[in-house]
Amino acid sequence: MNKNNVTIAFAFILLFFITSDLLHAKQLAQNEASQLAQKLGQLQQIIIKNNQIIANNEKNKQSLEQQSLQNQEQINGQLKENYCANQLVPLPISGSLYNRAKNLRQSTNTSEFTH
């Protein structure tokens, strides 16, 4: 064999290995793309579920607010003619009650967590 034949044979062997390596890399990239697409689909399903939970929580919150308003109206109606209900509450007690109610509302306020 002469040098040209050896060089050509070496070039073909080198070309074969390079092509084989590229095909292997392509297969790995396709597998990774497939796995990422699957994970993306799973994340989209999780997002859909979480959005539904958020919507349900908001609906429940609105329902509870409406119920609270109705209860307050009912209480106000029942206390309208009540002598004790029409008496002034001492300032330290009313302030304490106000602060307690305010703290309770703040501890149940979830709107700051949805931003």
Rank of each mutant, 00 (worst) to 15 (best):
residue 1 M to K: 01
residue 2 N to K: 03
residue 4 N to M: 13
residue 4 N to L: 09
residue 5 N to Q: 14
residue 5 N to S: 12
residue 6 V to K: 03
residue 7 T to N: 01
residue 12 F to D: 04
residue 12 F to N: 08
residue 12 F to S: 03
residue 15 L to I: 06
residue 17 F to S: 11
residue 17 F to H: 01
residue 20 S to W: 05
residue 24 H to P: 00
residue 25 A to N: 11
residue 26 K to V: 01
residue 26 K to L: 08
residue 27 Q to F: 11
residue 29 A to T: 05
residue 29 A to E: 14
residue 31 N to D: 08
residue 31 N to K: 08
residue 32 E to N: 02
residue 36 L to E: 01
residue 37 A to D: 03
residue 39 K to L: 06
residue 42 Q to F: 03
residue 45 Q to D: 12
residue 46 I to D: 15
residue 46 I to S: 14
residue 47 I to C: 01
residue 48 I to L: 10
residue 49 K to R: 09
residue 52 Q to Y: 06
residue 55 A to T: 11
residue 56 N to I: 08
residue 56 N to Y: 05
residue 61 K to T: 10
residue 61 K to M: 07
residue 67 Q to E: 15
residue 72 Q to T: 15
residue 72 Q to M: 14
residue 74 Q to W: 08
residue 76 N to H: 13
residue 78 Q to K: 06
residue 82 N to L: 10
residue 83 Y to K: 13
residue 84 C to G: 12
residue 88 L to E: 09
residue 91 L to W: 11
residue 91 L to F: 08
residue 94 S to I: 10
residue 98 Y to M: 08
residue 106 Q to E: 10
residue 106 Q to F: 04
residue 107 S to I: 07
residue 108 T to R: 14
residue 109 N to V: 04
residue 111 S to W: 04
residue 111 S to T: 09
residue 112 E to M: 07
residue 112 E to A: 13
residue 112 E to W: 15
residue 113 F to K: 08
